[in-house]
Amino acid sequence: MLLINNLHVTVQGKKILNGVNLEIAAGEVHAVMGPNGSGKSTLSYVLSGREGYEITDGEIVFNGKNLLDFDVHERAGEGVFLAFQYPVEIPGVSSMNFLRTSLNSIRAYRGEEPISAVDFLKLVRKKAETLGMDDKLLQRNVNVGFSGGEKKRHEVLQMSLLNPKFAVLDETDSGLDIDALKAVADGVNALRSPNRSSLVITHYQRLLGYIIPDYVHVLSEGKIVASGDKELALDLEKKGYTGLNQIQAA
């Protein structure tokens, strides 16, 4: 589904990614762990097409297409979804309007008819209920006045509505208490399917106890330095990233 090949990225002249290689097949969940500054968030932004990231070498192939040829909104149309580490507050834009515009944009991209207001309302209410979200929250402006947990649930709600093929979860666990973490993880797990893949980016093993990955990769200084199964995450938790560097050096 997704192939990242020798990806080199600079931001404002500074090299952040130094040849990342990663292959994710349909239905797989991969986790990327790594210390601060290792390039985890850069990887998520490059996948979603954010401006300001210069790809100096390498390629990203998504379902046989060169992902780098697409603009941000087109990537979303192609089925890439980024759950933000810090979901953005947008005063003046109601959540409902945002969600509907978003869903209809994606539907238009796929050549589908727009969803009617009534059907949309039903759909959103159902999804919100599944996530244990008060749908009154959606009467508010996008993320404005949402708690940390509500923001992350809102991200999962969007993911569930837009039905992406590939989701990047960027530190979805940050700022969550155990209950919220569990609710968010349940939401993500409910979306696991043989045709959907995910990339879970996280600092800690904690989240991976709830969203069990098929593969774990360690990103350090812009490169994947170790890959393994979920045991690698537990190993890291014990030894820390410095411990890992020692293993690498040995």
């Binding site: 097409g49 603009d71 941000v72 909104h73 979303a76 953005v88 507050e89 834009v93 944009s105 991209y109």
Partner: peptide
């Protein structure tokens, strides 16, 4: 940031 957020949800620029 907000523009990027909207675009990342499929909304054209």
């Amino acid at each position: 940031n907000a523009l990027f957020y909207l675009k990342s949800r499929g909304i054209d620029p």
